[in-house]
Design a binder for these strands. Structure first.
Length: 115
DNA sequence: GCAATGACGCTCT
DNA sequence: CAGAGCGCCATTG
């Protein structure tokens, strides 16, 4: 359908279990900077059996973006908690400790210092 | 073609 | 921390 979707799904699949990424973060990783909305749309077109961990994507403030079926936001939260993700009393993910820090390949620099 | 509508984000009040 | 404003863009009517 939309070739960009494939890139988006690929990016989401990279998010490790127990960590979360923001829509904007995913967009950038997919090579589509500034198109966070497109990420949301892409996830919406997704089907359960696609093997894409859509629940690991939250908005920039760590909240679970509301959508048509209110129940889906509950499902998302439950799945995240099952992976060990903690929430603030306000119902937002503790981004400081769970946001996925893209493992920007350490690079030889940092290894050189260790040895 | 134009206007409205979003699983969004960043800046500035 | 909550809003408002504005940017972004594929879809839909």
């Amino acid at each position: 359908v939309n070739p960009a979707y494939a890139r988006i799904y690929a990016a989401v699949r990279r998010v490790p279990r127990g960590r979360v990424a923001t829509y904007g973060q995913v967009a950038r990783l997919a090579g589509l900077p500034g198109r966070a909305r497109l990420v949301g749309r892409a996830l919406g077109e997704l089907s359960e059996g696609a093997g894409v961990p859509w629940h690991r994507v939250v908005n920039a403030s760590g909240g679970i973006s509301p959508r048509g079926e209110p129940v889906s936001t509950k499902v998302q939260r439950r799945r995240l908690e099952r992976e060990g993700v903690r929430f603030t009393p306000a119902g937002r993910v503790l981004m400081k400790s769970h946001q996925w820090a893209v493992a920007a390949e350490p690079g030889l620099e940092s290894f050189r210092r260790l040895g």
